[in-house]
Nucleic acid binder design. Sequence first.
RNA 1: UGAGGUGUGGCCAAGCGGUAAGGCACCGGGUUUUGGUCUCGGUAUUCCCAGGUUCGAAUCCUGGCACCUCAGCCA
Length: 565
Amino acid sequence: MAEESLKVTNFIRDIINEDIKNNKNNGNVVTRFPPEPNGYLHIGHAKSICLNFGLAEEYKGRCHLRFDDTNPVKEDVEYIESIKEDVKWLGFDWGEDLYFASDHFDRLYEFALELIKMGKAYVCSLSADQIREYRGTLTEPGKESPYRNRTIEENLDLFERMKAGEFNDGEHVLRAKIDMCSGNLSMRDPTLYRIRKVRHHRTGNKWCIYPMYDFTHCLSDSIEGVTHSICTLEFENNRPLYDWILDTLGMDCHPQQIEFARLNLSYTLMSKRKLLELVEEGHVTGWDDPRMPTISGLRRRGYTPEAIRDFCGRIGVAKRDSMVDLSLLEHCIREDLNKRAPRVMAVLNPLKVVIINYPVDGVEEVDALNNPEDADAGKRKIPFTRELYIERDDFREDPPKKFFRLAPGREVRLKYAYYIKCEEVIKDKETGEVMEVRCTYDPETRGGWSEDGRKVKGTLHWVSADRSIESEVRLYDHLFTKEDPSDIAEGDDCRNYLNPDSLTVLRSCRVEPSLAGSLPGSRFQFERLGYFCVDPDSGENMPVFNRIVSLRDSWAKIEKKIKEG
RNA sequence: UGAGGUGUGGCCAAGCGGUAAGGCACCGGGUUUUGGUCUCGGUAUUCCCAGGUUCGAAUCCUGGCACCUCAGCCA
């Protein structure tokens, strides 16, 4: 993977290098990516996937894919499949190391028993509300549960009966006996097991008690022989508990938890809960809507795994809360596609051009380079006829300064074809709208150059009027108008910042005939416009293209400056 | 007012006592049959602030300040 050369070092690699130097873990590196199957993966997960699998690759270790499926109420097999697909699509392979936290339920139960026997865990019969009250606050210590000093025998009996289904949800929980006065709330006798009389998507009805994250995660890591358990910053407060459980049980394998800052991307959201809202409320068409920051959305939009991996390498890994500019992601996909996307001509907002000195039924084929960045990409033929379409933006009746496209009396190059000169403008008498531009062509400029060395200011893309294909093109913009839609005042709602123009559908676009029958997922550069990807919605005779990203547009900048004076 | 973290250019991010890497963005020049690509050049006398140690501090010490996380039987 070429993009790996761009990787800079980071504090996690420093830690691992130090560990290897000290022969900790016999020099092995085992990481894991532990998604909960309760939603689709997004670009923030991609950061974690690239980190964990990337480290494993780099240090010749392994990275486990482990589904953290301890809460059957929220989880579903649908998500398991999508997560596997996304990880694979990103280019990573967990090999034999596919696990489910639920695979470890039996051993977890044994560990809980052990803790009880050590007097380090007890069955608490306080209600959820009471537990909250007893917990104290951020600044005040908590109070010990009246059930805290039940005998080991009583605890064993109660826990056994919890497992046997003798109690209802919420009647009892198993808690660790740690310190109700700890400044760290997660050490104030945290819940280890709760009763949930629901069917689990993998273990069926075998269990009616399910272990909590804190209990499950560290032990699963330990059971699987993970060496470096990398997670996001919000788990920093949980690390003492992670360590306490492993230490108290005397686990041989004690992975090191390391926290890094999660990815935030401007103009979008990374919260699974909020993304689910967008889907359920119909603000987007689904998890794979091309505007979504999900892996499936980016995939449908046309992003490549290479570009996403490159992005993840460039953003770095650190502990500082940060917000990465969307322009970096856009840069990565442009850079990737510039090298490999075939060039093609397409007109999004067609304006008819009639070449008045060209034969009425004349057709000829001009040669076009498939990719000037790739010598092996070859050439193709494009039909040229008397009636053509150019982009409406490429003609101005009254051109501003520095506009060097078509205008009355001006000569421009039609790429790969001829120089044409605008002779006449036909307008709608009522509206004044330009309906057609009549031009002459210079037969001596075939191929788009002139022997006399004459310079033309502009080169336009074009398409034959009757030898082009009608198509639909979907243009995308930021989902939100606010750079950080999660930064909202109380009472405000991120939905208030949804961008009404995040999707623009163009239905009368014309694309060159070579695009007929393009397969969904194929990517192209539409010359002078941007990179586009064939959407699965495409019909037999109506291809649909998603704009992945526009080309950089320095004319747009100039024009903006002119307008601003 | 508890505990744990974090502060380096517009956005990321190296830096680990020897005098501020790199990328994105931005600005300018060149090349160009994509106003794309490519290419050349510019952009922090300064690292949250204030003291201190040192020949020398973004890096060490002290004291402030700002921001983030934690009071689920979620993860």
